[in-house]
């Protein structure tokens, strides 16, 4: 195991070997003691100051990759424009974890139960790296797999500055520190109680986040009636096929996913 450290983004050029980048480290450190990472080279980027900013522009919100979930959770501007993300940030681990864990790290780890990821899907985030900008939809390839190339790092998460209602709910065995059995993020833009745009994303039900596109389509242009909501929820849960494991059954995950969708939509009325 070796450790490198860079203090400036421009120093990335000096890194020749294939490295694993280290931000808050909350996903990495538990693995250290298991000896899984003995041959790994780590590059600590936690000192790069200009990746720690949240900037609110006219059209966009840029969240530096090293912004911690504690800061996202406490940011009052974000709660206007990115309710789902703020809510998801509050669901990450515990205060100790939120004080260290970063949004960039959560995205790069690409865990199926990564709390911020479904939120980023419905907020139409783009992931900016030192090389390119990628829509979040195209970023994840599978369990812990992303499109990031060798020594490419996430620098910013860019969100369009939309005043949309969005929310995030997760179901776990207990209230804090829970690994989710299923999570739902949802964003709604409406006019006169008619859905102009609906985005629904599920976490922890498949290797990567699943969008409920049929349900979104069904609801778009329709009135927010109880009937439409329950139909949309029914369609949404048909779009996932979660598996059984010791945490829960696939059947349960699917049925609770539908309930969560309905619950958030009801809030949006």
């Amino acid at each position: 195991m070796r450790f490198l450290k860079i203090e400036k983004l421009s120093d990335l050029k000096t890194v020749r070997e294939k490295v694993t980048f280290l931000a808050g480290g909350t996903d990495i450190y538990p693995l250290l003691s298991d000896g899984f990472l003995e041959n790994e080279i780590f590059c600590d980027i936690s000192g790069i100051e200009n990746l720690k900013k949240i900037s609110i522009g006219k059209k966009e919100i840029k969240i530096g990759a090293l912004v911690t979930f504690s800061r996202i959770r406490q940011n009052s501007v974000l709660s206007h424009y990115a309710g789902a993300l703020v809510k998801a940030a509050g669901e990450v681990g515990s205060p100790q974890i939120r004080n260290r864990a970063t949004i960039g790290g959560n995205v790069a780890t690409a865990s199926p139960s990564g709390d911020s990821i479904p939120a980023l899907f419905v907020l139409k985030a783009r992931i900016k790296t030192n090389k390119r900008t990628i829509p979040v939809e195209d970023f994840f390839m599978g369990v812990k797999k992303t499109v990031l190339a060798k020594n490419e790092i996430i620098t910013e998460i860019i969100l369009p500055k939309n005043k949309m209602f969005s929310d995030f709910v997760k179901v776990g065995p207990r209230k804090a520190l829970a690994i989710s059995k299923v999570s739902v993020a949802l964003a709604v833009k409406k006019k006169n109680n008619i859905a102009e745009e609906v985005l629904i994303a599920f976490g922890a039900v498949a290797p990567t986040v699943v969008r409920a596109r049929k349900a979104e389509q069904f609801l778009t242009g329709k009135i927010f009636s109880k009937d439409n909501i329950s139909k949309a929820a029914e369609i949404a849960k048909g779009e996932i096929s979660p598996i059984d494991d010791f945490r829960s059954t696939g059947k349960y995950r699917r049925s609770v996913a539908g309930v969560l969708v309905a619950r958030i939509l009801e809030k949006a009325i």
């Binding site: 450790f3 480290g25 909350t26 538990p30 936690s46 504690s70 100790q96 004080n99 260290r100």
Partner: peptide, 18 residues
Amino acid sequence: AILLDGKLVNSCMLIAPQ
């Protein structure tokens, strides 16, 4: 847990340089 610059963090989730 320890307080790192006043913030509560787990010391098992920190390494020396941090």
